[in-house]
């Protein structure tokens, strides 16, 4: 896998998943950079460690659940304070589109 090279189409596909609108220059540059970073990352791809359990969490389990107690939410003006395009009672977004 060390010979991975990202094509421009692959870069655009990943950028689409991540909702990054890249211009052609960025696609070209990221393709190059990602290829070189992935080449390094791929040094672990061949390690024969399929039987090693993955570490999925940062620490051992702990009693981390919250009691079911409701508290009032924010005043609406605080909720909307940072909104780029607030309406009287909500957050406006452009049409969903095609």
């Amino acid at each position: 896998m060390s010979g991975v090279e990202l094509t421009a189409d692959e870069v655009r596909h990943v950028a689409a998943l991540a909702r990054l609108g890249l211009d052609d220059a960025e696609v070209e540059r990221l393709g190059r950079e990602l290829t070189s970073i992935l080449a390094h990352v791929n040094t672990i791809a061949a390690l024969p460690i399929a039987d090693v359990p993955p570490t999925k969490h940062s620490r051992d389990s702990a009693d981390s659940l919250r009691p079911d107690v409701a508290r009032p939410g924010l005043p609406r003006e605080d909720a909307l304070r940072n909104a780029p395009d607030p309406s009287a009672d909500g957050f406006r977004v452009p049409p969903i589109g095609a």
Binding site: V69, P72, G73, L74, D89, F91
Partner: peptide, 20 residues
């Protein structure tokens, strides 16, 4: 009584953006 991952009230039908 409260939401899944925070303590906001789990209520139906309140004024928009008041249980957040």
């Amino acid at each position: 009584a409260s939401k899944m991952f925070c303590s906001c009230p789990n209520n139906f039908g309140d004024e928009p953006n008041t249980n957040v």
